[in-house]
Design a protein around this nucleic acid. Sequence first.
RNA 1: GCUCCUGUAGCUCAGCGGAUAGAGCACUUCCCUCCUAAGGAAGGGGUCGCAGGUUCAAAUCCUGUCAGGAGCACCA
Length: 547
Amino acid sequence: MFKKEIISLLSKEINLKPEQIENLIETPPNPEMGDYAFPCFALSKKLKKSPDKIAEKLFKKLKPTKEIEQIKPIGPYLNFFINKKELAKQIIKINANFGKTNLGKGKKIAIDFSAPNIGKPMHIGHIRSTIIGDSLMRTYNFLGYNPIGINYLGDVGLHIGKLIVAYELWLNKKNLKKNPVNELLNLYVKFNAKEKTNPKLTEQAKEKLKKFELGDLKTEKIWENIRKVSAESFNKIYEMLNINFHETIGQSQFSDKGKQIVINALEQKIAKREPDQAVYVLLDGKKKFILRSNQTASYITQDLGAAVSRFKKYKFDKMIYVTDFRQKQHFDSLFSLLKAMKYDFADKLVHLTFGAVKFGKEIMATRKGQIILLQDVLNKTIEKARKEIKKRKTKGDKTKVGIGAIKYIILKNEPAKDVQFSWEQALSFEGNTGPYLQYSYARASSIIKKAKKTKAKISNHLTKEEIALIKKISLFPEIVERAGKLMNPSLIANYSHELAQTFNEFYHSNKVIGNKNQTFRLKLVQAFRTCLKNSLYLLGIEVMEEM
RNA sequence: GCUCCUGUAGCUCAGCGGAUAGAGCACUUCCCUCCUAAGGAAGGGGUCGCAGGUUCAAAUCCUGUCAGGAGCACCA
């Protein structure tokens, strides 16, 4: 929070732009060396002096201020010591708005996330898009943007054709009633197995798809049933996860719009027809098909339609597609196609990719039915939480704890990296986990609850744990901004862990209640709670007063 | 074959141009007459895949190379 002061001090003496100075400023490895450091290497060439001497010279020129109480050259670095009491004064004043900005005022960001396929259950691999997307929604909202969450259901496509064929052939009505999601999964797995020895089945699935697109009533009825059953199971999970969308709409709604775009492209000679009537656009010398020879829309046809419709509807400043890294080429093509078709908004589209969820060496896949159902994961972690709460005889909320554990596992990794899923990890509530963070919050709440209120006064001697906590809290706004800019919730997750750790170190060696600095320490604990609560809010993890 | 992503402690991950590379798990000790031990303290454990290059400075940037994963459909 006092970085700006240092930049303005330095910019008076150094011939560098404020942004350049900001980039150079760093944190010393050890707090005893200072709170901020300015390395002088970059200047030494220009000034033809050793960096040590430059640091020395700057030291003589700069005068401490109210916020920066001491400046000290250490070798080639010029180190700054902030006035901790001043910072403490500011930190204990923070409220629920801490970290919020109006950076994105008036800007709309559409976020396409979750997007499960109907007819398939959600598994632990699906959940990444859902949880990352939700966290981005929260983060952009915090930063003053107007985020629009879109759940683009995969309600059409060859997998649906396959499922409808299987439904007609092998459906067990009793099982469908008992556990619809499971029965649909069985049908799908069975189809994929049989398909290998019977290629006719694949043809049948394609036929079905065409019938469906042409509006065949019998097919539509089955589809509607699949859609309904799936929507119910998705909503159950979204409810548990406390995730909301502004719009939930199926891909199938954009087939017509997509085809219209294809026709326009043909008219403008951007697209061409094959002799068999399939339509393609040449991208980097390669044919990219945008309509099938049987004139049905494919995934990309619908995506074209959806993108154009969305821009018309929302006039977004940016749209982020949150999907698996395996779809990278698809989105690159989609963006290139839109550009080739002269849609200016193509520049506003971004694809945020994320890695796979692995269980051992396996990547989760629905095809073979080798999956870990999300519902099972949630149930098991919640059950574990229930046991832990019972053991401790506290008033913790098992759902909040269980869900928090799962969300944290998913968010703590950088999106680009794979997530290694194991039951051991999912059911562990110690160390770098969601429940650890919630526990820290509950401890802080407990202290507040037990203390009697008095007025705050900052003592003359801040302990090193107090200082560490104050400084850590002060970093929060920068972290949120960076997470938004880089579309990376893991920055917030890792920060939350560091924050909780710093707090735990603090309360172990700094008694709050009954201490002569109780008034100040209570305020500090309160500030910590506010900061952690906001930080966890951005991850979609709920806190409890007790657990 | 071409393209993309990932290689950091036994495992899971931070760090992504600066001063001795950090957490968590696991392992060895210690701390509940003390605000919830889902906690804290201490310890062992690393040629940052490998080789060059750029730089005053490289885990971090560039090139090459090896390993793992993925994509290269009128599937989504």
